[in-house]
C-alpha cells in the first residue's frame, strides 16, 4: 500500500494492546496473549517464533478472524477480521500445518475451492487452478485424488490453493513441519521465492530458528503468554557474525 505525502504507510496487520483470555472449566482463566502490540507492513515476511503454548496459534486465529480479542483490537487492512469476516473473502489465505485437502476432491478441485468462494466462472477457475498446479510442479496430477499423492505433493496442492485466490496476506501455520527434511527444505525455498515474486505479505508460525531465518525478513520472538520478547529485521546483508549474534539472542529469549 502506498502512503500519501506526509502519511505513514498503513500496516497490513495491526495488534493494538491485544489480550486474549480463555475460560477453562475448573481451572479459571488462561491468558494466551498479553497486551500485545505489533504491526506488520505490506510485502514483509514475518516469522513468529516461540515455544509451544506461547499463543502463536491464538494470534494466528485472531488475524484469520476465527477468534475475537478479549481486549484491544486486531485489524487487517484497517478492518476487523472477526466482525467483518465476509469482507476478507479473497484477501487472506491460509496454509495449514497439514495439507487439509478435501478427500472427495481431486487436486484441481481442491485448488478451486477458494476460487469458487469468489464466484469465478467454472472455466476461469479451472484455468487458474491448472496454472498454479503447473507452477508448483503438479502438472499431470490435476485429476489425482489426495490419497494418491505423496505428503510433499499434497502440501504443494495446499500451497497452490492458497496462492490461487491471489490474496494479499498469507498466513502459514508451520506448513513444512510435517514433511521430511529434504522435501520440506525444497518446498520452503520454492514457497519463499513465490511469496517474494508475488509480493505477498506473509506471517509464518514456526518452532524452528533455522526456518525463521530462511523464511522471514523479520523475526518476532514471543514469550509465554504471547508478548514480544525480541523483534529483529533479517537483512540479506547480514554477515555470519551478526546472524550468529541474533541466533544467540533468540535462543536466550526462548530459553528464558
Amino acid at each position: 500500500m502506498t502512503a500519501g505525502p506526509g502519511r505513514l504507510e498503513e500496516p497490513v496487520v495491526r495488534f493494538d494492546r491485544v489480550t486474549k483470555l480463555f475460560e477453562r472449566p475448573g481451572e479459571g482463566t488462561f491468558r494466551a496473549v498479553d497486551d500485545l502490540s505489533l504491526e506488520i507492513h505490506a510485502g514483509t515476511r514475518v516469522a513468529l517464533l516461540g515455544k509451544t503454548g506461547c499463543g502463536k496459534s491464538t494470534m494466528f486465529n485472531m488475524i484469520a478472524g476465527l477468534l475475537d480479542p478479549t481486549e484491544g483490537t486486531v485489524t487487517v487492512n484497517g478492518r476487523d477480521p472477526f466482525r467483518e469476516f465476509d469482507s476478507f473473502r479473497g484477501k487472506l489465505a491460509v496454509v495449514f500445518q497439514n495439507d487439509r485437502l478435501l478427500p472427495w476432491r481431486t487436486a484441481i478441485g481442491n485448488v478451486e475451492i477458494g476460487l469458487e468462494m469468489l464466484g469465478l466462472a467454472p472455466q476461469e477457475r479451472h484455468d487458474m487452478a491448472q496454472r498454479w498446479l503447473t507452477q508448483l510442479g503438479l502438472g499431470g496430477h490435476e485429476n489425482d485424488y489426495p490419497h494418491a499423492l505423496s505428503g510433499g505433493m499434497r502440501q504443494r496442492v495446499s500451497i497452490a490453493r492458497a496462492f490461487a485466490t491471489n490474496a494479499g496476506l498469507l498466513l502459514c501455520d508451520e506448513p513444512f513441519s510435517a514433511l521430511d527434511e529434504i522435501t520440506g527444505q525444497r518446498l520452503r525455498e520454492e514457497f519463499v521465492s513465490l511469496v517474494r515474486e508475488k509480493r505477498k505479505t506473509a506471517v509464518f508460525i514456526t518452532h524452528s530458528i533455522n526456518e525463521a531465518f530462511q523464511i522471514g525478513d523479520r523475526i518476532v520472538v514471543l514469550k509465554r503468554p504471547a508478548r514480544i520478547a525480541y523483534d529483529v529485521k533479517i537483512s540479506p546483508d547480514l554477515d555470519a557474525a551478526e546472524k550468529e549474534a541474533i541466533r544467540a539472542r533468540i535462543l536466550d529469549e526462548l530459553s528464558a
Binding site: 476465527l66 473473502r89 487439509r100 477458494g114 485466490t165
Partner: peptide
C-alpha cells in the same frame, strides 16, 4: 480441521 480450512476462504 477441514471445516476450518473451508471457513478460511469465507
Amino acid at each position: 480441521d477441514l471445516f476450518e480450512m473451508v471457513l478460511s476462504f469465507r
